[in-house]
């Protein structure tokens, strides 16, 4: 086990020679693209599944199955499809995050209290207007939970992907640490990955959840 001191040294060095900043930016860039795509696919898919029994019985059941599959299983396929490229890793991230977002959106929509829908209808909202003005806002807390879950799945998938194959990124530094038997570097990198995850959850998702809970009256004053 490396001493805390050597881990600290590895951290200072990594930030000093800019290898951590560069890696963090590379990983976050992939996250933004992959997670963004997962949201862009996951939310509409969840809406569609909640809306149509036909889609639920077909794609919906597939989504439930796919959700249990560790996303790294997609990497070999991704490498065959996209070659050794950025696209392959981003594909793994998308597959890791999309279905948990889809499931949360679908559940959120289906759990919207019928009373609110009836209230919306009797006040004249129908179709798209009812969805936009009632269903979506009512499902928003559940959707946010799904987004948070999706983020952590995306982060895990990204690290797994980078670990197995990539040119840049935090996962790559982990591999270098292993290849050179540099345990301090490995631990320092794990720390960086952990702290990044914590920062996002602490400064992005938690405030958003708190704000929603306060607004929606889900939280005691």
């Amino acid at each position: 086990m490396p001493s805390p001191r050597s881990v600290g040294h590895a951290l200072v060095e990594g930030f000093g020679d800019r290898s951590y900043p560069v890696a963090i930016l590379a990983s976050l860039a992939r996250m933004l693209i992959g997670y963004g795509l997962a949201i862009a696919i996951g939310i509409p898919l969840g809406l569609a599944i909640a809306r149509s029994i036909l889609i639920r019985d077909t794609i919906g059941s597939a989504v439930v199955g796919l959700q249990t599959l560790p996303s790294i299983c997609w990497l070999p396929l991704a490498l065959l499809w996209f070659g050794l490229s950025e696209k392959a890793i981003i594909f793994v991230v998308v597959m890791g995050a999309t279905f948990s977002i889809t499931t949360a959106v679908e559940g959120g929509i289906r759990n919207v209290p019928p009373l609110l829908l009836k209230a919306g209808q009797t006040l004249g909202a129908q179709g798209l207007l009812l969805s936009l003005r009632v269903t979506l806002p009512a499902a928003l807390p559940a959707i946010l939970t799904g987004l948070k879950l999706g983020w952590s799945f995306a982060w895990r998938s990204l690290m797994a992907g980078e670990l197995l194959y990539s040119e840049r990124g935090l996962g790559r530094i982990l591999t270098i640490g292993r290849d050179y038997g540099d345990m301090a570097l490995v631990l320092a990198t794990i720390l960086v990955i952990l702290v990044l995850g914590l920062i996002v959850s602490r400064y992005v998702f938690e405030p958003a959840e708190r704000a929603l809970a306060r607004r929606w009256g889900l939280e005691a004053e």
């Binding site: 009797t122 207007l129 806002p137 009512a138």
Partner: peptide, 29 residues
Amino acid sequence: GAPVLIFQEAGLFPWLTVRDNVEFGLRVR
């Protein structure tokens, strides 16, 4: 205009202020 229904539980939209709730149907129109 159509009849409007009032329920046993008020069914106010929790994310809207009281005034925005009252404005809901007007906004739809």
